[in-house]
Design a protein around this nucleic acid. Structure first.
Lengths: 332, 332
DNA sequence: AAACATGATGGAATCGTTTCCATGAGCATG
DNA sequence: CATGCTCATGGAAACGATTCCATCATGTTT
């Protein structure tokens, strides 16, 4: 019943050559044309597939790519993962996926698992801060960060969207519409964006209008609702991710705030439903798929030191969720 | 610089025992209490992690789970994958992810890759039909299907949502509202649902109102727009997936059909944005995450033959996208 | 013609684990 | 006291590939 896999030895015997020769032929080494031909035909006849297990053990590294994202459920990370998969497929490499939930502890656990698997390359959207990553980066695990970098480390290979420019554009757009009290609704690990927000807003920045949620939907909703209730005077919100944007829309609706009449809203990340929403959401589009693809490229071809990161452009897509500041919101 | 990994041999030497003993202790075999203790302390001191490479090679199977989904970008599959990841994590098993794009060829390619990796278990949302899977199932690759089964095979282990009941409920709901010309907008591999749709609608079924798209957004939109233009007399649509639902909303909007006044819409799969849509979408909720989790459970504990599948309940969530049949739509 | 360079080839070592088997100690039973 | 049984233990053989190295045949140079 359970046929043994055909091994390289079987091929060697059937072709009347040594295993070394088979290996050489199959990995493009030197061999005389006739043996090459013979080995190749025999190999296809026997439907031989080299076992990655054997190879990896010998070369002391598994070819695969580890991919660590906070949450596969989030459309942004889904698209990013899709990009990674596309590139990995074209390179014939398997991708091992792990969800960290933006929890440094789980993240460390997953890294450990990858190490145990002998994975030599990894793409991560880091949640933990710099020190946590320090040991990992020394392990020989070639790592490329995507979407953000560990706090306090700028010198690591990374593929990022140009958050700074995105935030600046959005803020300029809102201030151009007359808004002055603009809130930022952020998620975990968005130091970059917050800094850019502060910078773009300059003297107008109000610390109380910077609020942060953890990764979950509930947390996002709580943060959004809290913000809107606490500060009825704000007239615009910049949501730092599609979960946050969703939460903002929901919270606004719950509080009977009309978008965009009572509240203007810009959301980071363009998702398909942004167009279906009422009103359609103005967003800062990020090339999620490209981020993943480029990160995979980097980590694959990345044997040659090229730590300098990649910065991909963002784009403000104006739809219907922003309006000029009208009469200020009436306190409830 | 590049320190060699600590191997079982190192531990054995440091503890003054043989490698066999270390292996035994670490995998719960028999050993005297004092040696056990000694080995354990030494192992933690040296921060020893057994290499999965060596183990897998020896045992001729890699522990991991292969997961094949049509499209990670689709929220439904994202949630499903999340469920799989959750279960796999609790079992300490890595998950290798592949996107098939609902293309049997790519699917076969990915299966080949998994085999090459020595993966012994896999969860798949199949696109190809039964015969294509025949050889794979014989390979010793323990397979559990999720969300749907290969066409023409009912006898395989699978975790499914109760599509039949879901469709029936939705159709009853629509006919109860007075609708008679109801369309089904389907995706790849939905024979089950179509059959249920036919059955539920009985004599009312109109073959021209059954249209199918391939997996992509574009294809979905084309199918939806085509349907609505071709048959201005239909009053309700059942969309067989969130991509299709999205397309239906978009197409209706483009053709100036008001939902639900001119067109009632029910969508398979509850997604977060269904609530944000204008109007909020009435949906058939499926426990995507559970499907993934249960499938993972099945494929892990699944050594003991238990081919019988699992059927999980669906639920009709009534929101605002359906209305009683009013005056029939006026031809454009 | 002798010496040498070249290139194809196969044997054997290696990677890190598990597992089979033999060994020897300790102890009970005849 | 001899025999047999149980148990902990370590040596060594797998697993399936890659790769070093020695071998041998061929063709080239002096």
């Amino acid at each position: 019943m359970s046929m043994r896999r055909t091994t390289i030895k079987d091929v060697a015997e059937a072709a009347g050559v040594g295993v070394a020769t088979v290996s050489r032929v199959l990995s493009g080494g030197s061999a005389s044309p006739e043996t090459r031909e013979r080995v190749l035909t025999v190999a296809t006849q026997l439907d031989y597939r080299p076992s990655a297990l054997g190879r990896n053990l010998r070369q002391r590294r598994s070819g695969g790519i580890g991919l660590l994202v906070p949450d596969v459920t989030d459309s942004f990370y889904g698209r990013l993962a899709d990009g990674v998969l596309a590139c990995a497929r074209s390179a014939g490499e398997p991708v091992i996926l792990g969800a960290t939930g933006d929890d440094p502890e789980r993240e460390a656990e997953m890294v450990g698992m990858l190490l145990e698997q002998g994975v030599g390359r990894m793409i991560a959207i880091p949640s933990g801060s710099g020190e946590i990553w320090e040991p990992t980066l020394r392990t020989g695990l070639t790592t490329v960060f995507a979407h953000r970098v560990p706090a306090g480390r700028g010198d690591v290979p990374a593929v990022l969207a140009d958050d700074r420019a995105g935030v600046r554009t959005a803020v300029d757009y809102l201030t151009g519409l007359g808004h002055r009290r603009i809130a930022y609704l952020g998620g975990p690990g968005q130091e970059q964006r917050v800094a850019a927000f502060r910078e773009a807003l300059g003297p107008l920045v109000d610390e109380e209008l910077l609020v942060f949620a953890r990764g979950s939907r509930d947390s996002a909703y709580a943060a959004a609702a809290g913000l809107l209730q606490r500060r009825p005077d704000l007239t615009a919100v910049l949501a730092g991710g599609n979960l946050l944007g969703e939460a903002a829309v929901l919270a606004a609706r719950e509080l009977d705030l009309r978008v965009p009449r009572d509240l203007s809203l810009v959301m980071f990340d363009d998702v398909p439903w942004a167009e279906l929403c009422a009103p359609p959401l103005t967003v800062i589009a990020q090339p999620a798929q490209d981020i993943g693809y480029r990160a995979a490229e980097l980590v694959l071809r990345g044997g040659g030191r090229r730590p300098r990161g990649v910065l991909l452009p963002t784009e403000l897509v104006v739809r219907g969720s922003c309006a000029p500041r009208g009469t200020s919101r009436s306190p409830r």
